[in-house]
Computed example of a mutant assay.
Amino acid sequence: MITMSTTEEALRDFAQWQEQRAATVSAPYGPLSLTGTHWLADHPDGALPGLPGHWAEDGDELVLTAARDDGLTLDGGPFAGTVRLTPDPGPVTAARLGLGERRLVVLRREGLWAVRDFDPDAPARRAFAGIDVTGHDPRFVAEGRFTPYEQDRTVRVGNADGVERGLGLGGELAFTLAGREQTLQVSVEDDGSLWAVFADGTSGVSSYRFRFLRPAAPDEQGRTTVDFNRSLLPPCAFVDHFICPFPPPGNTLTAEIAAGERNLSARRDV
Rank of each mutant, 00 (worst) to 15 (best):
R84Y: 03
T65G: 09
T65R: 14
G50T: 10
D119G: 09
P89D: 04
A56P: 04
G71H: 04
A95W: 00
R109V: 13
G59A: 13
D88Y: 01
P120F: 08
R103G: 08
A47D: 02
D58N: 14
A114N: 11
R108A: 14
R68F: 13
A94L: 08
W39A: 13
G59C: 09
V106R: 06
D117R: 09
R125F: 02
F79P: 05
L107M: 13
G90D: 15
G100K: 00
T86E: 15
T65N: 07
D60G: 12
T93I: 05
A41F: 03
V105P: 09
A56M: 13
L85W: 02
D121E: 15
R116M: 07
D75I: 06
H38N: 12
D60C: 05
L62V: 06
D117H: 14
F128H: 11
W55V: 02
A127S: 15
D58T: 07
T93P: 05
D88L: 10
A47I: 11
P91N: 07
R68P: 04
G77W: 01
R103M: 09
P49V: 01
P44V: 10
T37V: 06
R109C: 04
L48G: 00
E57M: 13
A114V: 08
H38V: 08
L48P: 01
T37G: 03
F128Q: 13
L85Y: 00
L74Q: 05
L48T: 00
R109Y: 03
E110T: 07
T82C: 12
P52W: 11
A122I: 05
E57R: 11
T82K: 08
